[in-house]
Structure formats: C-alpha cells, structure tokens
Amino acid sequence: MQTKKFVVDAMLGKLARWLRILGYDTVYNNNFEDWKILKIAADENRIIITRDRGLCVRARKRKLECFYVIPGLKIEEILAKLSSKYSIDLNIVDPNFSRCSVCNGVLKKVNDNLWECTRCHKKYWKGSHWRTIESTLIRARAILKNNESQQQSISYDQ
C-alpha cells in the first residue's frame, strides 16, 4: 500500500478513483460538506484535494495540507501535478496493493486474474479497461517528465 492518504472533495470523484487505482488510501463521498472534509483531514492526517478555493484557504488556516486543483485540467495533468508535489507513483501498482475504486477497500487476490474488494466485494480483473488505465498513466508520466525538464532548463538559465 502507498503511504500518502487523501480526502477528496465532491467535485473530484474521478480523481479519487484514480488515486485508489494507484493504491492510495483516498476518502471520498460526494455528500461531504466542507466541515466534514476538514475534520477527516485533521483527525486522520490526510491531504485535502479540492477545486474549492474557500475550502483550501480554511484548510491552510488550520495548518492542514491542501492541494488546489485548477479547473479545466485533464486527469493526467492533475495526476502529474500531484506526482510532482507529493511523489505520487504514476505506475500501475500490483492489484494486490491497490484499492477498490468504489469504496476504498483493500483488494485481495482471488485467483490469477481476479481480485475482490475486502469491503464491498466488488470484483476486479485485468480486462480491456486496463489498456485505458495504462495509456492515461503513460500520458501523466510524460507530462510530469516534460514539466521536470522545463523546471531544470529554467534553473539552468538563471
């Protein structure tokens, strides 16, 4: 399992699913109000990820880590930015170390190509959707690498 833990606001459900696929413990519920997100972050030492500037300001006033997602970014751009800031691993983890994209439960191997969530019992397998996951992560890694190259050239120019 990955060590970083997150709580994601209602506007970023797709991102919560991606973080879970990557093996990160990610709390998400589209009914959570801001006070609940702040409480979860404080009680469980989680990083808040939000598109709500006001929530981010309140989090920072409470000395809570908050990552503001700029509206309009594609999922691979968000993942690249998270990877840069928090060292998020953008490689597909072994499903034995992944989380349920629906409920955040831990996956358990059932047989060679089948995993089951220990919480909600949803089944997972490496089907055709796996190629889509891989291609999105390849794009995210390319964006990250490009951003890092640009940062290096900026520091050399100064």
Rank of each mutant, 00 (worst) to 15 (best):
K109A: 06
E44N: 09
D94A: 02
F32R: 01
I37S: 05
D43S: 10
D34S: 13
G23C: 01
T3C: 07
E148M: 12
R53G: 02
L55T: 07
D52H: 10
D157C: 08
C56V: 06
K74T: 04
I138Y: 11
K126Y: 03
A59M: 03
G23V: 03
I138A: 11
Q2F: 04
Q151V: 11
L137A: 06
G54K: 10
A16G: 15
V69C: 08
Y68N: 01
T118I: 03
K74A: 13
L137R: 07
G54F: 06
W18V: 10
V102S: 13
S84Y: 10
K145T: 11
K5W: 06
I37Q: 05
L12V: 13
S83R: 06
G127H: 07
D43K: 09
W35R: 13
R131W: 01
A16E: 15
W18I: 10
L107A: 08
K85V: 12
Q152R: 14
K81N: 15
I133D: 13
D157T: 08
F6K: 07
S101A: 08
G13A: 05
C100I: 05
V102N: 09
Y68W: 10
V8H: 04
L107V: 09
V110A: 07
G105T: 15
N111E: 15
S83M: 05
G127F: 06
C66G: 07
I47R: 02
N91C: 00
N113M: 00
L38S: 10
E134P: 05
P71N: 13
K108F: 12
W125Y: 06
I21N: 00
R17P: 05
W125S: 06
D89T: 06
E76L: 00
E134L: 11
S83T: 03
K123D: 01
I47T: 12
D34G: 13
I138H: 10
I78H: 05
R51G: 14
R141V: 01
V27Y: 12
L73W: 03
D52N: 15
Q158N: 10
E116T: 09
V93S: 13
S135G: 01
G23Q: 04
A42I: 02
K36A: 08
T136H: 04
A16S: 15
F32K: 00
K81E: 15
R51V: 09
D9Y: 00
L15I: 08
D34M: 04
G72N: 11
E116Y: 04
D34R: 04
K126Q: 14
R46E: 07
K61F: 14
L144M: 03
V93H: 07
N96V: 00
V7D: 02
D52K: 03
I48L: 15
L137H: 04
I75H: 02
K74W: 04
S83Y: 05
W130I: 09
D112A: 01
R119D: 10
L73T: 09
D43N: 11
V69R: 07
G54Q: 10
I21L: 14
I70M: 11
T118R: 09
T132K: 14
N96Y: 00
S135A: 02
R99N: 03
L82V: 07
N146P: 00
V7N: 08
N146V: 05
C120P: 09
T3G: 12
V57H: 07
A10I: 09
A10G: 03
K4L: 11
A59R: 07
E116W: 02
K109M: 06
I49E: 04
C117N: 09
I133Q: 07
H121I: 06
E33H: 03
K109F: 01
I49T: 02
L137S: 08
N113G: 05
